[in-house]
């Protein structure tokens, strides 16, 4: 008797569970939902756009900020409608996976320091110097190489505590890509990548981790995304760009970098903007790229995603500015729209 009651109860539970599950699944399928995954860098602005876009069109965008690498593999596997990556893919890799790629928004990576008495932008660094600091070759703030670009500044005779990312990150990719551009020793040593074999320093998880380490370790240097610098008011270093000018990170200098970069020649927008040639270009300017399948499984959803990105490119500037990102220059937006028209239809 008891066993049969148990079995009946179990069966009832099972059916109840199945019933509720299928009920849940059928609900959201009726409203249109676009799914995407990838870069954590683009997540804040993408969610702001998504919220606004949903109000206008009713389409819901579900974006999972699992990291650029995750975004690439998910869109290749076809489990999401679009992916977002901070590191552009080469044309042959795109062709192999039958993907299209275009930039969506610009940001910058900033060298932040914790030096007593230094205000934001007061410290000046050159690219090779930054590479030498991260390589552990320049060990002290009182090193003559630092003093020579900061005449009159009161630099402490303390060791430099280097902070880098511990997790794989598009931010690290852009940062090390820049260091490789300006320092042959860095290029042949640690090289560029989302995570490299750091010669020295401690690793913080995420932008928050690096920002916290820099805030807490006196005489430290780290690199974080621009938005974190604006929101936290941390002291940052001016960097010397390819034209020889010392520039502070700002919407104008990022925009200058984007305009001076040679997008027209880059196939599938495969271009990393670091060390851009513009007179006022900020040297570590970064872009997030959207990846979409050229022959999507669900055409309607892919079209909905495309019209979302058109909206973001054309009307998304206020949200981007408010969140300390930089919208793409108008000329670049035009190129992207031609590209979308040609390869995604």
């Amino acid at each position: 008797m008891k066993t049969t009651t148990l079995a009946v109860a179990a069966a009832a539970l099972l059916t109840a569970a199945c019933g509720s599950k299928s009920g849940n699944e059928s609900a959201p399928a009726s409203s249109q939902q676009i799914t995407g995954a990838g870069s954590t860098f683009v997540y804040p602005v993408l969610s702001a756009w998504a919220a606004d876009y949903q109000k206008q069109s009713g389409a819901r965008i579900n974006y999972q900020s699992i990291g650029s690498g995750g975004g690439i593999s998910q869109v290749k596997a076809g489990t999401v409608d679009f992916g977002a990556t901070d590191q552009p893919l080469a044309s042959d890799e795109l062709a192999k996976a039958n993907l299209a790629q275009f930039p969506i928004v610009i940001g910058g990576i900033v060298a932040v320091v914790n030096l007593a008495g230094f205000k934001p932008g007061q410290l000046k660094l050159t690219g090779p110097l930054l590479a030498d600091i991260y390589a552990g070759k320049v060990k002290s703030w009182s090193d003559p190489a630092i003093a020579s670009v900061n005449p009159g500044a009161k630099l402490p005779s303390a060791n430099i505590a280097v902070v880098h990312r511990s997790d794989g990150s598009g931010t690290t990719f852009n940062f090390t890509h820049y260091l490789s551009q300006v320092s042959p020793a860095w290029k042949s040593g640690p090289g560029e990548g989302k995570t490299v074999s750091w010669p020295t320093g401690v690793g913080g998880k995420g932008n928050e981790g690096v920002a916290n380490y820099v805030k807490q370790i006196p005489n430290s240097i780290g690199y974080v995304e621009y938005a974190y610098v604006v929101q936290s008011g941390m002291a940052y270093a001016q960097l010397q760009n390819a034209a020889g000018t010392f520039v502070s990170p700002s919407a104008e200098t990022f925009s200058d970098a984007a305009q001076s970069a040679d997008w027209a020649k880059a196939s599938d927008f495969n271009l990393v903007m670091t060390n851009a040639p513009g007179a006022n270009a900020y040297p570590i300017t970064a872009t997030t790229f959207i990846l979409m399948p050229k022959q999507p499984k669900d055409k309607a959803k892919s079209d909905a995603a495309l019209s979302f990105f058109r909206y973001a490119l054309e009307k998304g500037q206020p949200q981007a500015n408010k969140l300390d990102y930089v919208p793409l220059p108008a000329a670049l937006v035009k190129q992207i729209e031609t590209y979308i028209g040609a390869s995604l239809k």
């Binding site: 699992i66 990291g67 690498g69 995750g70 511990s166 997790d167 794989g168 990150s169 690793g203 998880k205």
Partner: peptide
Amino acid sequence: AAAIANEFTEAD
């Protein structure tokens, strides 16, 4: 454990 937690998401 820390290495796995830090690096798994971007291990491409």
